[in-house]
C-alpha cells in the first residue's frame, strides 16, 4: 500500500461515490494517505525544531546575560553584549579584514583561471580543476598542519598575512567552482561576436563576459566571504595571540574558561551575521541557490 503518499491531497479520491467492485479501495487509501501525511508533517516539524533549537538557545541565552538558558521570563538584558571584551571585537574585525582580502584575492585569481579553462578547452582542464580544488578535498585539519609546517620557517604563522593566505587557498577552490559554472553559462558566441567586431579576446572578456558575470560574481563573493568568516579548523594551527580569528577566540575561551556570557553574545552576533547573509542572498537571487550542492561546506 502507498502509506508514504503525501503529494496528493486527501481530496483526490473524494469522488468515491462509485460503489462497484473496487469500492473497498478508496477507504483504505484515504486512511493510508492521512496517516502518511500526519507522519510526514510531524517529521518535518520535529526536524525543524531540532535544527532551530540550538540556534534559538544561543540567541535567547545571549539576552539573559547568564551562562545558561533560564526559564524565568524576567532578566532580559543586554548585559552580555555590553560585557563583550575588546579582544572579541578585535578578533571579529581581524576576521572580517582577512576574509575580505582573501575573497578579493580568490576572485582575482579565479576569474581568469576559469575563463582560460572553459574557453581554452585545455587538455589539462580536469587536472587543473582537481589541483585547484585540492584544498577542498584535503581535510582542513591536515591543510592547517601543513600550512603551519610551511609558515613557521617563513615567519608567516601568527600573522595577518598568514591567515589571509590560508583563507585565500580555501576560497580559491570555492571561487573557481563558482566561476567555472558561471563562465559555462555565458555562450561563447557572444565573445566570438565581440571578436568579429574588432575586440581582442581579452577586451571581449572584460567588455562582454565580465559584465554578464557581475551579478553571479557578487553572489559568489558573498558566499566566499561568509565562508571565510566562519572557517575554523584550517586557522586553528596558524592562529596565535597576534592573529586571532573570532572562531578561534571563541574556541580557546570555551576550552580555557568554560562558557562565558560574553562568548554566547558573540556567538549570537555570528548567528545574526548568518541570518543577514541569508536574507541578502534570498532577496537577490531567491532561496533556490542556497540548496545547491555547490555550497557543500566543511566544518
Amino acid at each position: 500500500m502507498t502509506g508514504g503518499e503525501f503529494q496528493e491531497s486527501g481530496k483526490a479520491f473524494g469522488g468515491s461515490r462509485g460503489t462497484r467492485t473496487r469500492a473497498n479501495l478508496p477507504g483504505r487509501f484515504r486512511t493510508g494517505i492521512r496517516i502518511g501525511r500526519i507522519a510526514l508533517t510531524a517529521y518535518v516539524l520535529l526536524m525543524l525544531a531540532l535544527l532551530a533549537l540550538p540556534i534559538v538557545l544561543v540567541v535567547v541565552a545571549s539576552f539573559q546575560g547568564g551562562m545558561e538558558v533560564a526559564s524565568r521570563p524576567d532578566g532580559w538584558s543586554l548585559s552580555a553584549y555590553e560585557a563583550i571584551p575588546t579582544n572579541y571585537w578585535d578578533a571579529l574585525w581581524f576576521t572580517i579584514r582577512s576574509a575580505f582580502w582573501a575573497t578579493i584575492c580568490a576572485l582575482v585569481l579565479a576569474v581568469p583561471a576559469a575563463w582560460g579553462l572553459v574557453r581554452g578547452n585545455l587538455r589539462e582542464r580536469r587536472f587543473v580543476s582537481a589541483l585547484v580544488l585540492l584544498p577542498d578535498a584535503v581535510p582542513s585539519i591536515t591543510l592547517g598542519i601543513a600550512l603551519l609546517a610551511l609558515f613557521v620557517p617563513l615567519g608567516l604563522s601568527n600573522s595577518f598575512a598568514g591567515i589571509t593566505v590560508a583563507l585565500t587557498v580555501i576560497s580559491l577552490a570555492m571561487a573557481l567552482r563558482f566561476t567555472e559554472a558561471l563562465m559555462g553559462g555565458v555562450p561563447e558566441e557572444l565573445e566570438q561576436a565581440a571578436v568579429t567586431m574588432g575586440a581582442s579576446r581579452v577586451t571581449a572578456l572584460t567588455t562582454v563576459v565580465l559584465p554578464l558575470l557581475a551579478p553571479g560574481l557578487a553572489i559568489a563573493a558573498l558566499f566566499v566571504f561568509v565562508h571565510n568568516l566562519v572557517t575554523f579548523e584550517l586557522l586553528l594551527f596558524i592562529a596565535g595571540p597576534r592573529a586571532t580569528p573570532i572562531s578561534v577566540q571563541l574556541f580557546s575561551d570555551i576550552v580555557d574558561r568554560g562558557v562565558l556570557p560574553q562568548a554566547i553574545a558573540m556567538s549570537a552576533i555570528l548567528v545574526y551575521v548568518g541570518i543577514a547573509f541569508h536574507t541578502l542572498v534570498a532577496m537577490t537571487v531567491g532561496a533556490r541557490y542556497l540548496a545547491g550542492s555547490a555550497m557543500a561546506r566543511k566544518g
Binding site: E5, S9, K11, F13, G15, R17, G18, R22
Partner: peptide, 21 residues
C-alpha cells in the same frame, strides 16, 4: 486531483482510484 465529474471504463467508475490503480 480534485476534479469533478465521472470517468468510467466499460461502465465501471474509476475516478475514485489513484493513478496507479
Amino acid at each position: 486531483p480534485g476534479h469533478g465529474g465521472e470517468i468510467s471504463f466499460g461502465g465501471e467508475r474509476i475516478d475514485h482510484l489513484p493513478p496507479n490503480k
